[in-house]
Amino acid sequence: MSNYPDFLNATTAAPACRGVDTTLFFPPRGQDSTEAKAIFRRCPLLARCRLWALDQPVTELHGVWGGLSHVERIDLKRVQLRRWRGGPGEHHDQMVQMRANGATWSEIAKAIGSTTESVKSYWKRQRRVRRIAQEQVAA
């Protein structure tokens, strides 16, 4: 996991969190994170930050990122976290690379030792998680 997304460090980036006391984004367990989330609502990088946060392992990324608390990210990723042993989820990075290179579903399934139906089903769930995240940003 990357400790901090590179796009927030870009000189052209203007995240709303820049210059804010970072302890605000890491409230103690059970404490309200409303103030931190309010900062994200006015951030021009909200969607990008949220998608980055959702791509990180939930066990390694704590605090409020992309306007979502740790618990909210876990809830949103429940579908994404259904990575069964030997299933397509264990090969996520490989599948993304193959898909980017134009591989068909059956080629991906063969490469990871799964069925075409399982690969398609996994991919559909991944798109659903991203769509939900993007809809929440737009709301």
Rank of each mutant, 00 (worst) to 15 (best):
M1K: 12
S2G: 02
Y4C: 00
P5D: 09
P5V: 11
F7Q: 06
F7W: 09
N9C: 06
A10F: 09
T11V: 10
A13S: 15
A13W: 06
A14N: 14
A14C: 01
P15N: 08
A16R: 06
C17F: 07
R18K: 15
G19V: 04
V20M: 06
V20D: 02
T23I: 02
L24S: 05
F25W: 02
F26Q: 00
P27S: 03
P27E: 00
Q31D: 11
S33L: 05
T34M: 02
A36Q: 02
A36C: 03
K37P: 01
K37W: 06
A38C: 09
I39N: 01
I39G: 02
F40N: 03
F40Q: 01
R42W: 00
C43I: 04
C43T: 05
P44R: 11
L46T: 08
A47Y: 08
A47R: 15
R48A: 15
C49V: 05
C49N: 09
L51R: 14
W52I: 08
A53E: 08
L54G: 13
L54N: 15
P57R: 13
P57E: 08
V58F: 02
V58S: 14
V58L: 09
V58D: 12
T59Q: 12
T59Y: 02
H62K: 13
G63I: 01
W65M: 03
G67M: 10
G67T: 12
L68S: 11
L68Q: 13
V71F: 03
E72R: 09
R73S: 10
R73D: 07
R73V: 10
D75Q: 12
V79M: 15
V79K: 15
L81G: 03
R82C: 05
W84N: 13
W84K: 12
R85C: 00
G86A: 11
G86E: 10
G86Y: 07
G89S: 11
G89P: 09
E90D: 05
E90C: 00
H92W: 04
H92T: 11
Q94D: 11
M95C: 06
Q97C: 00
Q97T: 14
Q97H: 03
Q97A: 11
M98E: 01
R99Q: 10
R99P: 00
R99E: 09
A100I: 07
N101D: 13
N101G: 08
A103T: 07
W105M: 12
S106M: 04
E107W: 02
E107V: 01
E107K: 11
I108R: 06
A111T: 08
G113Y: 02
S114N: 15
T115K: 07
T116V: 07
E117A: 12
E117Y: 02
E117S: 14
E117P: 00
S118C: 00
V119Y: 02
S121A: 13
W123T: 15
W123V: 11
W123K: 06
K124C: 00
K124W: 04
K124M: 04
Q126A: 10
Q126N: 02
V129F: 03
V129C: 06
V129S: 10
I132C: 01
I132V: 15
Q134P: 00
E135D: 12
E135F: 05
Q136I: 15
Q136P: 01
A138I: 09
A139F: 04
